[in-house]
Design a protein around this nucleic acid. Structure first.
Lengths: 314, 314
DNA sequence: GTTTATCATAAGGTATTACTTATGTTATAT
DNA sequence: ATATAACATAAGTAATACCTTATGATAAAC
């Protein structure tokens, strides 16, 4: 059976009018053209769909069944068109994001705002570690990833959109906190609680100290940012973390920023996508949003944090 | 938007394999043929449906939506085929009947049996008067009508399938009941309770008496067969009715058959259809059933009735 | 770097489709 | 009996659908 949508469309009009001539007028066709479409449809199912008794036309049982099918299928087509239209105009769609766990805090803020602007958009957010992020990009499981500087060799396209200040923190009573300025030489005498090797933060810190030709002592390795901060609160060592993750701790004064020479280390947050991937409409809009339009939201978030640096520098 | 089923079919295979070459093999086509179908579909919706990242293919959001639509539509098509197939092979269908009210009794019996043989068939049964029956045929509101001899000039095709004996009945204590044989001359001295003029039964009776050059006296005219029998039970007059409607009364002995010379008048029941109407499969089968195969069922019904005639003739 | 697998693109041919106009047929109305 | 309205049928045509083979481009594997 090889129906065509044309046949269904024409048949629907005929079935509604039960009159070929009027159907032809509605379709802007000649009457034989309409008859032929219906006839072809009848040949497809090898059964009469319409019967003529005297001058009047009637649907056969099979014709009635076919009419139901035709209407349902065409309605579905209309729905499809509408859905696609909405997806194109961003009234609908699915934004699939993944973010580094250290970016979680401020990305959530961004998303909350973005979701208000595009209320019908469904958003998926995966918060995971660096290697999983790269894996997800590779498998095309998400549209965009937000993370620190991505490694080379993955065919990725990264756009930085925000400073990411790494700061040294410890518990408020630590002797270094009171100092107006701590030199790097003094700093490396301390012991550190660090992110695991291979993590974005760790790589950045290692590069920084290497440039200064200094070495730091790692007391503990941890893969969880929250755990590192907790260790710092407990005095197990100094921590070097993204200031963006410190919102709560600074407000609660369980951690304070150490005013170290050369700090903060300014890294960046990046929006990352697979090279060659054509972003979905909604992903394009989201990327634009964070690259340009999200300044206010980010500002609201970061400004209070930077005050903690100024204070510690006083 | 002017999709084709071909495009949907091909797209479905591609979407399942996410591999053009394998899809082409499944479809017994060349690989470019498959690419072209998908491309055309993409042109229809003016959006990419599939994206290629490296060597792997992925559905876009819109592609996913299209895939859902394609699968749903094709499934509906399969359902349609199945329904039509069943309608053709009579596993399904809708039999629309109308019967004269006097035929109601035995038609119900026939239908009960027929419905058991074709359990998935839906049956509509209209029980109505003669003029409504003709009207329904005219409007093609039913497949077949069962009635007495239909009038000319309606473009009808009627096939008789059963004797319809008209008998004279009255209450058991009536003086004519005890007579071995009542002559017609004696009969017309009585008063009658009759069906209304224009009804099939009335026409047949008038013709019968006209042939005998006799006239009968009508005490009452009634359009309802049940009312006529009730009037006879109450002694308002003799009634001439189809024996087929007497099952209950004879069994309950509220009415008895008068053994009149020349009675029963044998008329017939007819299956009637519009001339030129092509019967639906199930209607064809039902007509065959009552014309040929329903003898046993009818016999079971009529045999006990005929015994009442034999008894009254003793 | 070379090979291999896979998809895209181009060119070309055949079959089919979807119409058109003209004409035939039939049932109903006059 | 004739006219009319409506559908069927036939013939012809322009467009296009659908497929093929050949070739090009690209990414991954070796």
């Amino acid at each position: 059976m090889n129906l065509t949508f044309r046949q269904l469309k024409v048949f629907d009009v005929v079935a509604r009018h039960l009159n070929y001539t009027r159907a032809a007028k509605e379709l802007h066709l000649s009457q034989p053209a309409v008859s032929m479409q219906v006839k072809q449809l009848e040949e497809q199912v090898d059964s009469p769909l319409i019967e003529k008794l005297g001058k009047k036309l009637f649907l056969t049982d099979i014709g009635q069944e076919m009419h139901n099918y035709a209407r349902s299928t065409m309605q579905q087509l209309i729905d499809l068109e509408e859905n696609i239209g909405q997806m194109k105009t961003l009234q609908q769609g699915h934004l699939k994001l993944a973010v580094a766990s250290t970016a979680n805090h401020f990305v959530i803020r961004l998303l909350a705002h973005f979701a208000k602007i595009h209320p019908k958009i469904r958003i998926s957010l995966d918060v995971t570690n660096r290697s999983s992020l790269l894996d997800m990009l590779d498998k095309n499981e998400c549209d965009l990833v937000i993370m620190g500087s991505p490694p080379d060799g993955y065919n990725l396209m990264a756009s930085s959109f925000l400073e990411n200040p790494l700061v040294v923190v410890t518990y408020p009573e630590h002797r270094l906190i009171v100092k107006k300025k701590v030199s790097l030489k003094d700093l490396v005498k301390e012991e550190f609680v660090m992110r695991e090797e291979g993590s974005g933060t760790r790589i950045a810190i290692e590069r920084f100290f290497a440039e200064q030709e200094l070495e730091f002592k790692t007391k503990m390795d941890m893969s969880n940012n929250r755990a590192i901060k907790h260790a710092a609160e407990e005095g197990l060592g100094l921590a070097i973390v993204s200031m963006h993750t410190l919102e709560l701790e600074l407000k609660a004064k369980t951690l304070k920023i150490v005013n170290v020479e050369g700090f903060p280390i300014y890294r960046h947050w990046y929006v990352v996508q697979r090279e060659g991937k054509r972003l979905s409409p909604i992903a394009t809009v989201f990327k634009d949003y964070i690259m340009k339009g999200a300044d206010d939201v980010i500002e609201d978030f970061t400004a209070p944090l930077y005050k903690h640096i100024e204070q510690s520098a006083d």
